[in-house]
Simulated scan of single mutants.
Amino acid sequence: MIGGSAAECTGVTLFTLAQETAQDWWDVEALFDTAFAPGRTALSSYRLRDDVPPVAALCRVARDEQGQLGGAIRYWPVLVGGTPALLLGPVAVHPIAQGEGLGAALIRDTIANAAEQGFERVLLVGDAPYYRRFGFARLEGVIMPPPTNPDRVLGLELVPGAWDGVQGEVTRAA
């Protein structure tokens, strides 16, 4: 089970998925530092997050039975040509928990929550072969701040047709 209850990813480790709280903030930041390159905050996607709070209801953490953080995911509000969208990321799994399906559980859980909450579309910058299994596909005409590779700009419709006609620059939400 996912969403505040236990999720056994491989039969070895039991993780509990829960909404991120203020007390989780620094643990999550430390996980992101561990999982990504030291210059992660210099990426153009971080300019879309500057001075904009994440969508708290979609930010989740996964902790094991001892309370150790195994994974985390965050979402941010953005605009694509003036149309609201969610920016997924970062999503990270601690190296000792990788390969257990925890990242997939976080993504599936939060996508379902986003749809339930009435969000229509999700955007991310990532590896298409990995994210395709969740329904993401390359977006044409959606322009992330440079130097983003356009082939890595992916989107998911939470409502059929939600990306139809949506094009333009991705900008920070006010």
Rank of each mutant, 00 (worst) to 15 (best):
I2W: 00
S5K: 11
E8P: 08
C9K: 02
V12C: 11
T13Y: 08
L14E: 13
T16C: 11
L17W: 08
A18Y: 00
Q19A: 14
Q19R: 12
A22V: 10
A22L: 04
W25H: 11
A37P: 03
G39N: 15
S44E: 11
S45G: 06
D50W: 03
A57R: 03
L58T: 06
L58S: 05
R60Q: 13
R60N: 05
V61I: 11
A62D: 02
E65L: 13
L69N: 04
L69T: 05
G70Y: 01
G71S: 09
I73V: 15
R74Q: 15
R74S: 11
Y75M: 09
V78F: 08
G81Y: 04
P84G: 12
A85H: 05
L87F: 04
L87T: 04
L88A: 09
V91L: 11
V93L: 08
V93C: 07
H94M: 07
G99T: 07
E100S: 15
G101N: 07
G103M: 06
A104T: 07
I107S: 05
A115T: 07
G118P: 09
F119K: 09
E120F: 04
R121E: 06
L123I: 09
L123C: 09
P129W: 08
Y131A: 01
R132T: 11
A137Q: 14
E140S: 15
P145S: 12
P146D: 12
T148W: 09
G155Q: 01
G155K: 06
L156G: 00
L158T: 05
V159N: 12
A162I: 01
V166G: 04
V166R: 02
V166H: 02
G168Q: 07
G168E: 09
E169H: 13
R172K: 14
